[in-house]
C-alpha cells in the first residue's frame, strides 16, 4: 500500500469535520446538506482506497437516495413542527459525561486497532481470497466475497431491507392513499425523466452484469433502479406506487426468497446453506443478484413513495369502490 499523501490526510480531515458538521449543526436542513456532501467525500475516499464498488454504492445510496429521504422527511417535519429547528445541544452533566465516555471509547478503539495492526502485519485475507477465486464463479474479488464467501451476510442484509419495507407497510396510514399533492406537472422534468429513465434501467442492467468481473453488482444496480423510480415519482407528482399487485409483491421478496430457495437447494444436494457448488456458482450468483437488484430498487422507490404518502401498501384492503383500479 502506498504511503499517505497530503491529499489523503486532507481527505481524512475533511471527512471528520463534515461528520462533526452533520451531528453538530443546529439547523437540520444544513445538517442534511452536509450529510450529502459527507456521502460524496466518503465516495471519494473509497475511490482512493481502490474500492470503486463501495464508492458507487456510497454515492448512490449514502449521498443520493438517503439524502432525498432526509430532505423529504425534513419537509414533512417542517410542516408540523418548527420548534425542533431551534433546538440546540445543551452542555449539562449528562452531555458532558456521555461526551467524555465517547471520547474514551473512541481512543480505546483506536488504540486497539493500531495495536492489532501492529501485532499482526501482513495482508490479512487478501491472499486466500485470490487463491480460491477460480472456484467462486466470478472474477471480481469483491463480488466473490459478497455473494460467495460471505453470502450469508448479504442474505441477512437483503432480509433487513425486506423487513424495513414490511414495517413501512405496517406504518402506512389506514386511509385511502390519494392524490393530495398540489404540485403541478413540470414538463421539463417529465421530458427529462422520459429520456433518462430507459438509460438508467440499461445502466442498472450493465452494473448487475459487470459485477461478475469488475466493480458493480446488485446493490449498485438496485440503487440505480431505485434512483430511476424516485425520478419517475418526482416527475409525476400524481403517481401512486401500488404494491398490492402480485408482480410488485413478488419483486419485493425476490431477493430474499431467491437466497432462501437456492440456499435450501444447496442443502438438499449435500452442501451447506448458501454454499454454491463451484460449477454452478456463477448461475446461482447471477440469479440472486438479479432478484436482489429488483428487490432493492423497488424497496428504495417504496421508501421514497412512503415518505411522500404515495405508497399503497398491500396491507390495505379497500372495501367497495375503487377510483383508479
Amino acid at each position: 500500500m502506498a504511503a499517505a499523501t497530503p491529499s489523503d490526510i486532507l481527505l481524512c480531515l475533511l471527512i471528520l469535520s463534515l461528520a462533526l458538521g452533520v451531528l453538530g449543526d443546529a439547523n437540520p436542513f444544513r445538517g442534511v446538506i452536509i450529510f450529502i456532501v459527507f456521502g460524496l467525500v466518503m465516495a471519494l475516499s473509497w475511490t482512493r482506497l481502490d474500492a470503486p464498488d463501495l464508492a458507487l454504492a456510497e454515492a448512490a445510496l449514502g449521498a443520493g437516495v438517503i439524502g432525498v429521504l432526509f430532505l423529504v422527511a425534513l419537509r414533512k417535519q417542517g410542516e408540523k413542527d418548527v420548534s425542533l429547528a431551534t433546538q440546540r445541544l445543551r452542555l449539562n452533566s449528562v452531555t458532558i459525561i456521555s461526551g467524555l465516555l465517547l471520547i474514551v471509547f473512541i481512543v480505546y478503539l483506536g488504540a486497539l486497532g493500531v495495536f492489532s495492526a501492529w501485532k499482526t502485519p501482513g495482508k490479512g485475507l487478501v491472499e486466500p481470497v485470490y487463491e480460491s477465486l477460480h472456484l467462486t464463479g466470478v472474477s471480481n474479488p469483491v463480488t466473490a466475497v459478497i455473494l460467495n464467501y460471505r453470502a450469508y451476510d448479504t442474505f441477512l442484509e437483503i432480509g433487513v431491507l425486506y423487513l424495513v419495507m414490511l414495517s413501512v407497510f405496517a406504518l402506512q396510514p389506514d386511509e385511502k392513499a390519494k392524490f393530495t399533492s398540489t404540485e403541478q406537472y413540470d414538463r421539463m422534468l417529465r421530458s427529462y425523466a422520459r429520456g433518462i429513465v430507459p438509460f438508467m434501467v440499461l445502466a442498472a442492467g450493465y452494473l448487475l452484469w459487470a459485477g461478475a468481473f469488475r466493480p458493480g453488482g446488485a446493490f449498485q444496480a438496485g440503487a440505480m433502479l431505485g434512483g430511476a423510480g424516485i425520478l419517475l415519482h418526482l416527475s409525476r407528482p400524481a403517481m401512486l406506487l401500488d404494491m398490492r399487485g402480485l408482480v410488485a409483491r413478488l419483486s419485493l421478496v425476490a431477493g430474499f426468497f431467491s437466497f432462501c430457495i437456492l440456499g435450501i437447494l444447496a442443502m438438499l444436494y449435500g452442501f451447506d446453506f448458501l454454499q454454491w457448488p463451484s460449477h454452478l456458482a456463477k448461475h446461482a450468483i447471477l440469479t440472486v443478484e438479479t432478484a436482489s437488484t429488483l428487490s432493492i430498487g423497488l424497496t428504495l422507490t417504496g421508501l421514497y413513495a412512503s415518505v411522500e404518502r404515495k405508497l399503497i401498501s398491500p396491507a390495505i384492503f379497500y372495501s367497495g369502490e375503487e377510483d383508479n383500479p
Binding site: D186, M188, L189, Y192, G195, I196, F199
Partner: peptide, 13 residues
C-alpha cells in the same frame, strides 16, 4: 453529454 443534460435541468428546476 449526460452531465450537460442533467445540469441544464437542475439549473432550470
Amino acid at each position: 453529454l449526460l452531465i450537460l443534460y442533467a445540469s441544464a435541468l437542475n439549473g432550470y428546476l
